[in-house]
Simulated scan of single mutants.
Amino acid sequence: MSHTAHIPSHRKPRRSSSKLALRAGVAGGVLSTIAVASGAGPATAEPVTETIEMPTLTSGLSAAVAQSAEATSQVALDLELQAQEDAAAAKAAQTAKKAKAEAERKAEAKEKAEAKKRAEAEAQERASRDSERTTLSAKSSTSSNATGSAATVVAFLKAQLGDAYIMGGTGPNSWDCSGLVQAAFKTVGVDLPRVSEDQSVAGTQVGTSNLQIGDILYWGGAGSAYHVGVYIGDGQYLDAANPSKGVVIQDLSGYPASGAVRVL
């Protein structure tokens, strides 16, 4: 036996492999735990991350709210402008309607005034003609039968000067040629046929070179005449000429008659 066998060794006792493994395992576990904790750190920090990003979300929401408010304000402005335009259009339409009504009223008043003026003028002219006819009739009643009859016929005819020509007219203010001649001779009691053809053969045929006042002139053939008038002396005759002239005095030289008949 060695003399050093009982002297304690100053070396640390050798650790067994199992203990080393155990310690290594514990250390590894601790490191693993730290690693896991370290790896889990971001997960637990996620709320912090969201909190940091909140200002960005709030800024976007504010912009959206501001945009919405601006759009609402624009809509309100558009509605107000539309209301103003509608009100202006309604006012303009009402003004135009009043102006039209006023113009129509003035036009109607003017038309009534002109119609009244025309009616008064026609009444005055008619009264003047009636007075002239009455005077001529009174004068002719004092004449001799033959001379007086011709004078009465001519006086009646002259009283119709200016009257209108209307086909088929028999008076008192519009005539055709035969209607005027018939009415004129009726004032002295001579009943003539109504139309020119018959009047052209109603009396004694006389030549146009030997005419007397009161002779009936005709144009066309005897029995087929298309126009008649009455000779009033001095190479003139009076007739209801046509729609453009009416009742007028004309010269035979300008429109010579075809023939004449004498009934007085």
Rank of each mutant, 00 (worst) to 15 (best):
P172H: 10
D163Q: 07
Q182A: 08
L192N: 07
Y165F: 11
A183M: 09
G179F: 02
A155H: 09
V153Y: 07
K186S: 11
G179L: 03
F156T: 07
G162Y: 12
L180M: 10
A183D: 08
A155P: 02
S137Y: 15
S137L: 13
A150N: 04
G168F: 03
C177G: 07
S137R: 15
P193N: 14
G168S: 04
R133I: 10
V188K: 01
S140V: 06
T135E: 14
N173F: 15
T187M: 04
V190N: 02
T134M: 12
T134P: 01
G171R: 05
K158A: 04
V154P: 00
L136T: 11
A138S: 12
D191V: 06
D176T: 01
A150C: 00
S143D: 14
F156H: 11
T135V: 12
D176L: 00
T142V: 13
A155R: 08
D191I: 04
L157Y: 11
A138C: 00
R133K: 11
A183G: 01
F185E: 12
A164Q: 08
S149N: 15
N145V: 04
A184T: 12
V181A: 12
T170L: 06
A183C: 03
A155I: 01
A183R: 10
T152H: 09
F185W: 15
C177L: 10
T187Q: 15
A151C: 01
G189N: 09
G179M: 03
T147C: 00
T135F: 12
A159M: 00
T142W: 02
T142N: 09
A159P: 06
E132S: 14
T147H: 05
D163N: 13
G162N: 06
K139V: 05
N145D: 03
E132C: 01
S141N: 13
L180C: 06
T134D: 12
W175S: 01
